[in-house]
Write a protein that binds this DNA or RNA. Structure first.
Lengths: 208, 208
DNA sequence: TACAGTAGTATACGAACGTTTACTTGTCAA
DNA sequence: TTGACAAGTAAACGTTCGTATACTACTGTA
């Protein structure tokens, strides 16, 4: 059936991520797939629709991902320091899997680049960029950390500043992963950062 | 004399920063300046040359900036904690002035955006992006911190990790500053981050 | 077997692209 | 006063753009 439609979407995304929407021609997309641009219009009504379907796809992936990582409440009693460890482990595994998605998964990586390239000419994409890669994660972590502080599973400090300290290296290491040879693996630096963060911000032990 | 040539350069940069090089037409640049595109070719031999001259200009600004901020050696004896404070104050003022350049100065801000948009299709620009905004600053801070640790004016730890912790919020806050309304000012968060960083990483006092 | 629908090609459309050319000014020194 | 030069316009060049149309081949079903 519509295997072609999917190939068009992925090929277009790959090109949009490298050159930007405007710099990619419909002929180029079709050419890579060994067809003429006329055929492409059987599957999408115009070039813009391909872009929109890509964004739709990402939104759908994001919703599924959020559903999967919905924080299931820890119901049984634990000591604070164990709770800190458990929560932080969850944050750590979620963070590293997100990092791999944005740097190693083809769709994630290309989508991120495409959004990066379109953010300054398209206000909707600018919002999306902030929501997914900048303001959004910081505010999310800020709320999370504030709650953890209130519950005493995180050392008290400025939650927004702490969120910035936690998330910013994630953001920077993604950018650095776009360079061809990085020497040290970005993912190793990320886990080192998270481990150091966890250790530094554990609450003063009052049990165990 | 060549006031027009300068206006062309700045106008082109503004458009390149918003839409990307390919999406900007020569006619658009000329149109904004109230001239026809034919006139533009009196000043630049083609579109690409405008781009190259912009990069040249940035390189020149960078060289001048580096010359101005050449670290003049502190010659007179100081206690370690005072030395830490003095060095960190220098880093702090340099960092905030750099931040303002990339976010508030028109040339700096537009150039940053332009490089961001061109990094995935132009290997030279990719190198430039890494050198100026990612790998470069981290490696620079790493060397600086390593030296400071050796001199005992900074608490011992992993210098690369520390460089990441210091620089990443700078990098992220620049991205966040591109969003129209930020609520809290990015520059205030940056100085809060730096202050917190200085306080956390001061060496254990052994004098004063 | 006839036919409707799908997915493709080939081609054409007008517009816009980067670039070049021929021509018109204004300015200033010989 | 003349003439070279600098800086501009208007128009055209060949190409490519996104999109539309007419037509063809294949496929499954009535």
């Amino acid at each position: 059936m519509s295997d072609t439609k999917e190939k068009i979407l992925l090929t277009a995304l790959r090109l949009f991520a490298q050159d930007g929407y405007e710099a990619v021609s419909v002929s180029a997309i079709a050419g890579i797939l060994g067809m003429t641009k006329g055929a492409l219009y059987r599957h999408y009504k115009n070039k813009r629709e391909i872009f929109d379907r890509i964004v739709d796809r990402m939104v759908q992936i994001d919703i599924e991902c959020a559903k999967k990582h919905e924080v299931p409440e820890v119901t049984f009693d634990q000591s604070l320091s164990a709770y800190h460890g458990a929560t932080m482990d969850k944050i750590k595994s979620f963070t590293t899997s997100q990092f791999q998605f944005w740097t190693e998964n083809e769709f994630g990586c290309d989508f991120r680049k495409m959004v990066t390239l379109e953010q300054y000419r398209n206000p909707e994409i600018a919002d999306l960029y902030q929501k997914v890669f900048a303001n959004g994660p910081v505010s999310y972590m800020e709320d999370l950390f504030r709650e953890m502080m209130a519950q005493g599973v995180l050392k008290n400090s400025n939650p927004r500043l702490l969120a910035l300290d936690f998330y910013a290296p994630f953001h920077l290491l993604i950018s650095m992963s776009d360079a061809p040879s990085d020497g040290e693996k970005a993912i190793d630096l990320l886990t080192a950062h998270i481990n150091s963060f966890i250790q530094k911000n554990a609450p003063n032990r009052q049990s165990q």
